[in-house]
Amino acid sequence: MTWTAPRTAPTTIRTNEEIRARVALVCAGLSGDPVVGAAIRRLGGAAEMLDHAQSGTDVDAVGPFGPIASQAHGSRVDGVIATTDRLGLTLISPEHESWPRGLDALGDAAPLLLWVRGAETVLAEEAAAIVGPCHPSRETRQATLEFATSMADRGWVVASGVAPGVEELALRAATVMRGATIAIAPAGLGRHTVRRVTPSVTVSAEPPTAGRTARSTRRARLVLAAIATCMIVIEGIQYDNAPR
């Protein structure tokens, strides 16, 4: 099955108070925090939560987030939005039509925003995630190729991380089959370097200039698992009698 990327024209990021509030919370390292997610849900939005925090009302509902409220109107948020626009990225929130509905399963621990490069409509399709070791054996590589090409041939979107080894190979194999692919990056898309494959869409829950951390890596894995309809874990395979 052949997948053809739709033509998309660069657009200027249109922001509102809700998006600015979410960017402020992400910059403060609170994306995916279940306490923050619960407050947003109870109060009807991130902007409403920060309004409550700034006014000092309903402290029990918003928690100790008052100092963050001012950041929603600060230069740091302006800088993130400007960089998002300059890099040609799309910024989507749970209200966006391309938001992966699988993330809803994370409840209050879902990321507050996603930065997207490429054909965001792919995020609405069924995806099979393929993950495995960074230094696969020959047999593991062969298994990766078989799974990735088979899933792409059947019309599945192949999703993975951006690590070398199985993840990179799965995306390359699906691309060769002209299938759609999703890559989940643990760093901001302004820092993420494309290796030997360009996915149909690359996604990050981190601001564009954010580096990779242990926390962002865990979050990327969580996002990958949530958006995938199924997960294929290819462990190290080695046959003692395999020819060398």
Rank of each mutant, 00 (worst) to 15 (best):
T4P: 00
P10Y: 01
I13G: 00
I19Q: 11
R20W: 07
R22V: 01
V23H: 09
V26M: 04
V26R: 05
C27D: 03
C27K: 12
G29W: 04
L30A: 03
S31M: 01
P34D: 06
A38T: 12
I40M: 06
G45F: 02
E48T: 13
L50W: 07
H52W: 14
D60L: 13
F65D: 05
I68R: 07
Q71Y: 00
A72S: 15
H73V: 01
H73T: 08
G74W: 03
R76P: 00
R76E: 15
R76W: 11
D78F: 01
G79W: 04
V80L: 09
D85S: 15
D85T: 15
L87Y: 07
I92N: 07
I92M: 02
E95F: 07
E97I: 07
E97P: 13
S98K: 09
W99I: 05
R101M: 01
D104Y: 14
D108S: 13
A109Q: 14
P111W: 10
L112A: 00
G118P: 09
L123C: 01
L123A: 05
A127C: 07
A128K: 05
I130S: 04
I130R: 07
P133C: 11
C134L: 06
S137W: 04
R141V: 11
A143F: 07
A143D: 10
E146R: 07
A148Q: 02
T149W: 01
S150I: 00
G155E: 03
W156Y: 15
A159H: 03
A159D: 08
A159F: 11
V162P: 00
G165K: 08
L169A: 08
A170R: 08
A173W: 02
A173N: 05
T175Q: 15
G179Q: 04
A183Q: 05
P186L: 02
G188K: 10
L189V: 11
L189Y: 06
H192C: 01
V194D: 08
V194H: 10
R196F: 09
V197W: 03
S204H: 03
S204C: 02
A205P: 05
P208V: 04
P208C: 10
T209K: 05
A210F: 06
A210R: 11
G211Q: 09
R212E: 08
T213I: 04
T213S: 15
R215S: 14
R218E: 15
R221D: 13
A225T: 09
A225S: 14
A225Y: 01
A225H: 12
I237N: 02
Q238M: 02
R244M: 07
R244I: 11
